[in-house]
C-alpha cells in the first residue's frame, strides 16, 4: 500500500496554486490529506500532480463577515472545533465534531477538504446543507459561488470543476432564536455515519418555521430532507408529527443497501434520529 509516483508542487500563494491547477487538469489538491492520502495509498487515487496548499497562509482562517462565518481552505477541523467563534455562532458544527474522526485526523484534516471529498457518509456535507452554506470555487480566472445543496452531486462527486479549488466556505449564522439538533449512529464513535441528521428551526407563535434538515449516510451524497421540512413548516411541534414526518421521509429515501448495513436499517435510523434531532432543536429554540 504505497502511493504511485506524482509530481509535487508547493505553491506559496493562491494565484500560484490556481495557475498550477489550470496547467495540470488532473492535479489533486493536498490540504489535510486525511481522505486523499489513504486513497493514494490504496492507489484508488493516482494523481500525476499534487498541489500542496499547506504553505498558503492566506487560506488558513476562520472569520466573521457580519452574519456569515467564512472558513478558509486550510482551516483544520481541530481549529474549527475549538474556535470560540464557531462555538458561539455555529454551535451545531462545534457539537457535531464529537462524531467526526479522531484527534490526530482532526489535527490535519480540513473542512474544505472534507467537503470536496464528498463522502456520502460524512457529516459536514449534511450540516452545510442545513446551514445553507456557500462554496467559493476559485480558478485562475475568477471565482464562483455554489450553494451547498448544489455542490454535492454524488458519491465522491461535487460541482467543483477541473482547475478549481474550494478556497472558502461561507456559512450564514443562524437567525437569533434558532434551535438545532444533530444525531448520528455509526458503528464506533468517530466512524463514518450509517445515518446522521442535522436540523435547524425556529418557533414563531408556537409554530415551527424555517425548518431545515439534512442527512448523511442515506443516499449517494448528503441530502436535504425537503419532505420533512415541508411537513413541519408552520405546524406546532409534536412527537406524533415528528414521527410521521420522519417515517414519510424514510420511506422516500433510497439509501445504500450493503451486505453489512441494509437500506431498511438506514431508513430505520432516519425514523429514529430525525425526531430526536427535531426534539433537541425545539428545546434549544427560543
Amino acid at each position: 500500500m504505497k502511493p504511485a509516483a506524482f509530481e509535487y508542487h508547493r505553491p506559496d500563494d493562491l494565484p500560484s496554486a490556481l495557475a498550477l491547477l489550470r496547467a495540470h487538469e488532473d492535479a489533486s489538491v493536498l490540504a489535510g490529506g486525511q481522505s486523499l492520502v489513504p486513497m493514494m495509498n490504496y492507489r484508488l487515487a493516482q494523481p500525476d500532480h499534487l498541489v500542496d496548499i499547506n504553505r498558503i497562509d492566506e487560506l488558513d482562517f476562520i472569520r466573521a463577515e457580519s452574519a456569515v462565518i467564512v472558513i478558509g481552505a486550510l482551516a483544520r477541523h481541530r481549529t474549527i472545533q475549538s474556535s470560540p467563534l464557531i462555538a458561539e455562532r455555529l454551535p451545531m458544527v462545534a457539537h457535531a465534531y464529537e462524531w467526526i474522526a479522531h484527534a490526530a485526523v482532526r489535527n490535519r484534516g480540513t473542512l474544505c477538504g472534507n467537503l470536496c471529498h464528498a463522502d456520502p457518509a460524512s457529516e459536514m456535507p449534511a450540516l452545510m446543507q442545513v446551514l445553507e452554506a456557500e462554496m467559493v470555487l476559485a480558478r485562475a480566472d475568477g471565482t464562483r459561488r455554489v450553494p451547498a445543496v448544489e455542490f454535492f452531486t454524488g458519491t465522491y462527486e461535487t460541482a467543483r470543476a477541473a482547475g478549481e479549488m474550494l478556497t472558502e466556505v461561507r456559512i450564514p449564522t443562524p437567525p437569533a432564536g434558532s434551535g438545532w439538533g444533530f444525531e448520528e449512529v455509526s458503528m464506533r464513535k468517530g466512524d463514518f455515519a450509517w445515518a446522521a441528521v442535522g436540523c435547524q428551526l425556529r418557533i414563531d407563535n408556537g409554530a415551527l418555521v424555517d425548518v431545515r434538515m439534512a442527512a448523511a449516510g442515506v443516499g449517494d451524497c448528503a441530502l436535504r430532507l425537503r419532505g420533512i421540512e415541508a411537513a413541519l413548516e408552520g405546524e406546532p411541534p409534536s412527537a406524533d408529527l415528528f414521527a410521521q414526518a420522519a417515517h414519510d421521509a424514510a420511506e422516500a429515501l433510497d439509501p445504500p443497501d450493503t451486505a453489512a448495513v441494509s437500506a431498511d436499517y438506514r431508513r430505520d435510523l432516519v425514523r429514529a434520529l430525525a425526531p430526536r434531532a427535531l426534539t433537541a432543536a425545539v428545546a434549544r429554540a427560543e
Binding site: 493536498l30 490529506g33 486525511q34 492520502v37 500542496d52 484527534a103 490526530a104 485526523v105 489535527n107 490535519r108
Partner: peptide, 27 residues
C-alpha cells in the same frame, strides 16, 4: 494499517499528533 485508522504511526509534527502514514515526508 497505512490507511489512517490504527494510529500506530502517530508522531508529533510541530507538537501536534498526526498520522505519519497520511503525510508525505516532503511536507
Amino acid at each position: 494499517c497505512e490507511h489512517g485508522v490504527c494510529g500506530s504511526c502517530n508522531v508529533l509534527v510541530n507538537g501536534v499528533a498526526v498520522r505519519s502514514c497520511l503525510m508525505f515526508a516532503v511536507q
